[in-house]
Design a protein around this nucleic acid. Structure first.
Length: 114
DNA sequence: CAACTGACGATAG
DNA sequence: CCTATCGCCAGTT
């Protein structure tokens, strides 16, 4: 049996559209655990396979892949690029174009540019 | 059941 | 840019 939190996380991840990404923190936030980003990662690790989750669409808040080279980094990047996600010279993703939020409707436009 | 482990994040230096 | 520390707590041992 899985916890409600886990279930919620799974549902959110399953709904991430192709070609988009989101972060651990955002998922945790919408799963009612603002500070539980770590658990999201743990859940992904243990449940991505049994629930067929698009785990590669989840990155950290620095807009980078969290995995280390040789431990999945290349695979994740490859999968994302195949969906159209672009990485810049710093290996970061342009959140302005690819970040997705669970509630879609309330997407905050970071309007402040400095 | 207790202890350990983290695909993270924020903060501080 | 970097490292270190703390908080969070599901899953694993």
């Amino acid at each position: 049996m899985i916890s409600p939190f886990t279930h919620r996380v799974v549902e959110i991840i399953k709904s991430i559209p192709k070609g988009k990404v989101t972060t651990y923190g955002i998922i945790a936030d919408y799963a009612n655990n603002r500070l539980g980003a770590r658990q999201v990662a743990r859940i992904l690790h243990s449940s991505s396979q049994k629930y067929h989750l698009p785990w590669h669409r989840v990155v950290n808040k620095q807009a980078r892949i969290s995995l280390k080279a040789g431990e999945g980094y290349e695979l994740q990047r490859q999968l994302l690029e195949q969906e159209g996600v672009v990485f810049d010279e710093n290996n970061r993703i342009d959140f302005d174009r690819f970040l997705w939020w669970p509630n879609q409707a309330g997407v905050r436009k970071t309007k402040k540019e400095k």
